[in-house]
Computed example of a mutant assay.
Amino acid sequence: MRRKFCSELTFPSVQSLLPEFTHEQLQLLVILMAFVIVLIFESLYANNERSLKTFQQNYLTNIILFIFNSILMSLLSVYSLLTIADQYSTEGLLSRISNPVVKIVVSFMLLDLTLYFWHKANHTFSFLWMFHKVHHSDPSFNASTAFRLHFVELLLTAGVKALYIVVLGVDKAVVIISEAAITVFVIFHHMDISVPGEKWLGRIIIVPYLHKAHHSVRREEHDRNYGAVFSIWDRIFNTMIEIKPAEIGLKYVKARSFMELLLFGFVRVYP
């Protein structure tokens, strides 16, 4: 009887014990974990000395913008990227690849290439730059700069990612892995630190010193280094630059408050 009783017992799976997260919640969790780790490293090894007032103002503005964007994106999202992946993962160009490892690698590389061209488009077309310039308006360069994004740019980027998922037929698991990895990389390459072996690493991935050049006030310098993860796209398409910028941000644009940044996103100028 005891053996029979034990055999009839059912135990919940690990997956059933874990709460179900939406795509936005998963991304938020990864961002918060990565940001805390990066903030610790940056506070210990930052290249530039910053006054407490500048530190507080910069971080507070960028974090408030991040919170606003997170809430807004959650309210506006009818279909998350994971929902789209569920519907189209068997119909895209990559659906014929049976090897899961190969599919993950190819999907991730193509997503990074897509984001390279999308980033370049944000610098090329005035309508897109109108919103993207909010990110470049930060007069300093630190991990919180990664969150200095206008909500319209985030919505447009989500549309680009959704199209990428539909066309390629990307699996839900691949979307989760890719989003997490790219999020961590974007926060990483906004860190104001020197990375050991960064010159060598910079031949493969985007490291802080490469992305810092992208935040130069000089247009001929900030219209370079568009990569999100891999630097190979910038080298292939001749958009790589390796310099130490004299000044960060946009000309004639100083630190702005949260509301000023939202309105600044609708101003058609290229300072």
Rank of each mutant, 00 (worst) to 15 (best):
A228T: 10
P12S: 09
H23G: 13
A180G: 07
A162G: 04
W200Q: 15
V105N: 00
I187N: 08
A246K: 13
I248K: 07
T114W: 03
L39D: 05
S13E: 12
S178V: 02
M240T: 07
I67E: 12
S70V: 09
L201M: 15
V175P: 09
V207C: 08
N58L: 10
L156W: 05
F125P: 01
L263F: 14
Q57G: 00
E242D: 13
K133A: 10
L65P: 00
S126F: 09
Y226S: 08
D234Y: 07
K133E: 07
N48K: 11
N99I: 12
V229I: 10
M191D: 06
A34Q: 07
F117I: 02
I63N: 01
L81Q: 09
F66N: 06
K172E: 10
E247G: 03
D234R: 04
P208Q: 04
F264M: 08
F188A: 03
F41C: 09
K103I: 00
L111K: 02
C6L: 15
L111T: 01
T10M: 11
N47F: 03
T83M: 09
L28K: 11
L128T: 09
R2Y: 15
N69M: 07
F127L: 14
R203M: 04
I63D: 01
S51F: 06
Y45H: 06
F127K: 02
L263D: 05
K133Y: 11
A255V: 07
Y164F: 15
A181H: 00
L17Q: 11
N99M: 00
L29F: 14
H189I: 12
M73F: 08
A180T: 13
H190S: 08
D86A: 10
H211E: 12
N48M: 03
I177Y: 02
L81G: 08
Y226L: 07
L18D: 01
I97S: 00
N58P: 08
A121N: 04
F66Q: 12
F188C: 13
K212W: 07
H136Q: 10
M240Y: 11
Q56L: 15
K251G: 03
N62M: 12
I84F: 10
V195C: 06
L28Q: 11
L72Y: 04
H215F: 13
R256V: 11
F237Q: 03
L110E: 05
R219Q: 13
F108L: 10
F68H: 07
N122P: 03
R203N: 14
K212D: 02
V269W: 04
S231A: 15
E242Q: 10
I241M: 15
Y45Q: 02
Q15M: 11
Y226F: 15
F131P: 04
K120C: 04
L113M: 13
L75F: 10
L163I: 13
S77Q: 10
K212A: 14
H189V: 15
T54R: 04
S107L: 00
L210H: 01
V267H: 06
E42Y: 09
M240P: 01
F35S: 06
V253A: 05
V38T: 13
H150S: 05
L149C: 05
F230T: 06
F125N: 02
K199D: 09
I176P: 02
K212M: 10
S77L: 01
K53S: 13
Q56N: 07
V14C: 04
F117P: 06
M1L: 07
H135C: 12
P271V: 07
H123A: 08
S257V: 06
N69F: 05
H123D: 06
N62S: 05
L18S: 10
R50N: 01
L110T: 01
